[in-house]
Design a protein around this nucleic acid. Sequence first.
RNA 1: GCCGGGAUGAUGGAAUGGUAGACAUACAGGACUUAAAAUCCUGAGAGGAAUUAAACCCUCGUGAGAGUUCGAGUCUCUCUCCCGGCACCA
Length: 805
Amino acid sequence: MNKYDHKKIEKKWQQKWAEAGSFKTADDSTKEKQYILDMFPYPSGAGLHVGHVEGYTATDIYSRYKRAKGYNVLHPMGWDAFGLPAENYAIKTGTPPQRTTDESIANFKKQISHLGLSYDWSREFGTHNPEYYKWTQWLFAKFFEKGLVYKKKALVNWDPVDQTVLANEQVLADGTAERSGAKVEKKELEQWFFKITDYADELVDGLEPLDWPESTKINQRNWIGRSEGLIFTSPVKNTALTIDTFSAHFEAYCADTFVVIAPDHPFLPTLLDGLPDKEKILAQAKNIADKRSLTERGEVQEVEGIFTGRYTVDPVGNGELPIWIASYALAEYGTGIVKCSAHDERDFAFAKKYTIPLKVVLVPEDPAEQVAVKSFERCYADMKNGILLEPPTFAGKKAGDVRSEIIAYVSEREIAKAKTTYRLRDWLISRQRYWGAPIPIVYDPEGKAHAVPEEHLPWLLPTDVEYLPKGTSPLGTSKELFERTEKIFGKGWKPEVDTMDTFACSSWYFLRFADPHNTKEFASKKAMHYWLPVDLYLGGAEHTVLHLLYARFFTKVLRDMGYISFSEPFLKLRHQGIVLAEDSRKMSKRWGNVINPDDMVERFGADSVRLYEMFMGPLEAMKPWNTNNIMGVRRFLEHIWALAQTIKEDGGVESATEALLYQTIEKVTKDIEALKLNTAVSALMIYSNHLRTLKVVPTLAYKPFLQLLAPFAPHIACELAEQLGFTVDTWPVFDPLKAASSMVTIAVQINGKARATIKIPVDMPEQEALQQARSNPAIADWLTKGKEGKAVYVPGRIINFVLNT
RNA sequence: GCCGGGAUGAUGGAAUGGUAGACAUACAGGACUUAAAAUCCUGAGAGGAAUUAAACCCUCGUGAGAGUUCGAGUCUCUCUCCCGGCACCA
């Protein structure tokens, strides 16, 4: 009897798969396809993390399962290779990022190959390959032609550590940079933007039908922050000016008694024109704005303000309203100017502080509670349940019930216009860094921007640069780049020296996998039509906004340009949870608690590591690593190995085994479809435990089991199948007739408490079943303790007698 | 503050409104062994009563409290705590 030697058989099968090209995908459009994709990794120097292994194993199981079911499966892998760690390493050591990146990729690939993952490596690429970023640049140029890329001077997020600007999406809630952890500063710079706001509505509406985690959809909706409200336009007294104010909670508009404007509002100087105190007020406004930008984003700030000296004439008939500068008004949201009232917490606090008069037009339903509101003791801002007092048309009605009627009412009377605003800003993509795709723009001697024409793409990243960041792009130090530009375009032409945000590169890679070697197009329409959209997309939840939003934006733009015919790139999305260390903390070099997948594969084998990571718990849950527990799945595999050595030639399969086998087929199939892989492994264990109790294990009971096991532990399954003379590349067919056993054990309850079990035929008629239950000694005993009332019989499940006492 | 998600043995976790704790780990006892490891078998939510002992038996038990139901870990309401996201967004 031979022993289970994971090293030998895993090496053997990995070689076999590689040599046979077993997972190479054919564009066989006669077959139904499945496109199963992992979020491609950044190839960091630290190598593969057990968290990567979890996600990759899950999609691998899904892919192998779909192949066994007869689908044509596309399951590729590539590298999100541009990015700061390689560049920072270059600054420290002088090693070119190109070299570091390629070394890391080789290491990742080696680690992945040891796990027996069924990727089609013939489609591999990295976003740093010129053959790839040529098309990233080509797409940029197309966007530029369509006016979807533009350059503007803007107040942007500046990371003082990484010395580059960042997108809003890359700044955390506490005002620190997502990557470097540095406190982000505001700087006014001229930068390139993608016009993602053009698609704001569709990015919200398109979420609805997607099979995505609800929390991810909500995060995206919140980020886009669509809100419907009213714009009120009103003249400024003693001037020729008018101001627009935006209000999303306008139901109590009759209560407005003042107006606030953001301290950094560009309109402010104009508004103050002609006032004697203009300069003094502007200086104070600047003071307020500066103080605000210094405050931590997380901390609550004391409101501050100053009266401008101006009044608006309220279009609604609230008279003349004083205009104040207030620290809590944001220039970049809505119109940056707000009509204020007693029915907003911030307005209320502000008015109290500066003793601005207030007016109440909204009260709680409960008269007892109205007193405090009417006497301005507390702010009442419930725009849903509050009762309106004004205007007369809506007096006495619940504000929430008449919201749309108010919109109609004020629109008809031309008091205000309905308007939708968004929190989403355009996507800032310029980076003053080296290791990214160069922005394919050149400037003529007049300074006008032109896209680099297609024949000069890829617009290569120069190598003669100083990596050290000094607040301007390292590309500015490249002699080659400037010479190249003048040589091609003429004297006086200058290159753009910023590179693109790496998120631009990862916003379309899933399209490239459909046709990765195409030199004429970013991917052929035919290949994209067959393979896309992605059927299953798996990756970490940290990308709920950034990557997933950008990829959706690219997809919609390319659809509008006619390259693709679908609107959403990822039909089904799942997140894998974070794998914590054994001490339930995050894995970190600092804590010395990092689990290296290589060590685990070496000790226990790839099949055990794969099974264990699936068995840990639900895919999406955050869960701690426990090396002890791998022994459990390792033992399971050894049992399977031992069983195979004792298989006897086919006799029949007795009915209990057959029923359990078919129940297992059903359970494992459904669980894989739902990605409930922890319970699928458990079902396999239950079946294997059963086989171990048998004196004789017939091939008929063992072969389908190996087929079920194969996606999870492919090496051992292939090896045993080969030894026994069959293959595991098909999926067993579920037969409900064979899964059903004729007898069933059901619980008998008295008043909902289980008191006994009885074994009866599944289809036993109610009266007979009840009779049999009553004759059970324990139940009979209980039934003497009270008068039997109602009896509930759920066939195959339960009997419940209710006693009347 | 707002929006999500969660709380089940010593641990990871399982459970279409129907016998809570599947499966696994750790633990304890036993077998094998000179011994240990490995392996195999058995036990086990907490408590109680009873017994030579075990089983059977009884009470309680899924963060806390109420409710709906013949029956609630699961549904509804209130609360506590934990995790994630957003946060002067008018």
